[in-house]
Amino acid sequence: MTVLLVVLGAAVGAPLRYLADRMVQARHDSVFPWGTFTVNVTGSALLGFLIALPAGDGMIALAGTGFCGALTTYSTFGYETLRLAEDDARLHAALNAVGSVIGGLGAAYGGMVLAQAITT
């Protein structure tokens, strides 16, 4: 049953990631991968929020592992960072790497704090 919940969450998260990435990136005329950055930070905030809620294993499998796992994308982040470095946009590559890690961790923490504030 848990595997099915993960699959269902991922079936929603993956297409949403693609659509959100394209929508955000289309609004920016920049080499910086704003679409991937946005979905990764947003997904981190949502996952932090979900983890801090008093939810059961089924909800974590569906929304956390499935949805957030498919919404966020470490492989695309890695690829785009290396592509920027190879294209001599090293400052953008460094900003993407540092900003994504700090932004993702900060967003996850913010999501946790928000969930705790709502539930207490």
Rank of each mutant, 00 (worst) to 15 (best):
M23T: 08
L8S: 09
C68A: 06
M23D: 04
G9D: 04
L5Y: 10
R90Y: 03
G110S: 14
A97P: 11
E86D: 14
Q116H: 15
A107T: 10
W34P: 06
G56H: 10
G13C: 08
G43F: 03
L19A: 13
A97D: 02
P54I: 05
R90A: 01
G56Q: 08
A52E: 12
L95Y: 03
F77P: 13
T81M: 09
P15H: 09
G58K: 06
R17Y: 12
T73P: 02
A10T: 03
L62S: 06
M23V: 00
H28T: 13
R27H: 13
H28V: 11
G64N: 08
L71M: 09
G58C: 01
L53S: 02
T76F: 11
W34F: 14
S44K: 02
A11Y: 12
A11T: 11
G13Q: 04
A70N: 10
G111L: 03
H92G: 07
L82Y: 04
A89V: 00
T72S: 09
A14C: 05
G111K: 10
E86P: 05
A10F: 09
A55Y: 14
I60E: 01
A61P: 00
S100P: 15
V41I: 15
L105W: 06
P33M: 03
G66P: 13
V12Y: 07
D29F: 09
V41N: 02
A70H: 10
G78E: 09
T38N: 07
Y109S: 06
A115I: 12
Y74E: 00
L16D: 00
V41G: 03
S44P: 07
V98T: 14
M112C: 05
V7M: 14
T81Y: 09
S75G: 12
G103I: 09
G56P: 10
R17F: 13
D21Q: 08
A52Y: 06
T76V: 06
L16E: 00
A107W: 07
V6F: 14
P54E: 03
